[in-house]
Simulated scan of single mutants.
Amino acid sequence: MTFDLFDAPPRAAREPIGPAAFVLPGFALPRVDALLDAIGDVAARAPFRHLVTPGGFTMSVALTNCGALGWTSDRRGYRYSAVDPDSGAPWPAMPEAFALLARDAAALAGFDGFAPDACLVNRYQPGSRLSLHQDRDERDHGAPIVSVSLGMPATFQFGGLARSDKTVRIPLVHGDVVVWGGVDRLRFHGVLPLKDAPHLLDARWGAQRINLTFRKAG
Rank of each mutant, 00 (worst) to 15 (best):
D176K: 00
F48M: 14
G40F: 06
A115Y: 05
V178S: 01
K216C: 12
R215I: 15
D112S: 06
A28M: 03
H199Q: 08
G151Q: 01
G182F: 08
G55Q: 14
T2H: 09
L29C: 02
D7H: 12
R103H: 13
A97Y: 00
G56Y: 15
S147N: 01
G77H: 10
S164I: 13
P90K: 04
A62M: 05
G67S: 09
P85V: 13
T155K: 02
G110T: 12
D117I: 10
G113V: 08
M1Q: 08
F98V: 04
G175Y: 07
L132I: 10
P30G: 06
R215M: 08
L5C: 06
G206W: 05
R11I: 15
A34F: 00
L194F: 08
K195W: 03
R75S: 14
H174S: 04
S81D: 15
G206K: 03
W180M: 15
P25T: 03
F57T: 15
P92Q: 13
F111A: 12
G218V: 11
S60H: 10
S87A: 15
F98L: 13
A99S: 07
F48C: 09
L194E: 03
L194P: 07
Q125N: 09
T58L: 12
G190Q: 14
T72G: 01
V42N: 02
R11Y: 11
G70A: 10
S164P: 03
L108W: 01
A115H: 06
H133G: 06
D137Q: 12
R123E: 07
V191M: 02
R163M: 08
G70I: 03
D4L: 13
D74P: 14
A13I: 00
Y80A: 05
F158R: 00
A115N: 04
D74F: 05
H141W: 12
T64V: 12
A162S: 15
A118N: 06
D74K: 10
L132G: 09
G26F: 04
P116D: 00
F188E: 01
D74C: 12
A115W: 02
A93M: 05
V121A: 02
L192T: 14
S149P: 00
L192N: 15
L130S: 01
G181L: 05
L100W: 01
R136F: 14
Y80C: 01
L192W: 13
A34T: 00
G40R: 10
V191P: 00
G40K: 00
A20L: 04
L5Q: 07
S73V: 06
V183G: 07
L186A: 09
A21P: 10
C66E: 02
H133A: 04
R11E: 15
R75I: 09
C119A: 09
A197S: 13
G110Y: 10
G88E: 09
R187C: 03
E138P: 04
L130V: 09
T58C: 14
G190L: 11
P126Q: 04
L194N: 03
G70R: 02
F111Q: 11
F22N: 08
D104H: 07
F156S: 01
P144G: 11
G206P: 03
V121N: 02
G182C: 08
P25F: 02
G67M: 02
R45N: 10
L161C: 14
N211V: 05
G18T: 07
Y124M: 01
I39M: 01
P10H: 05
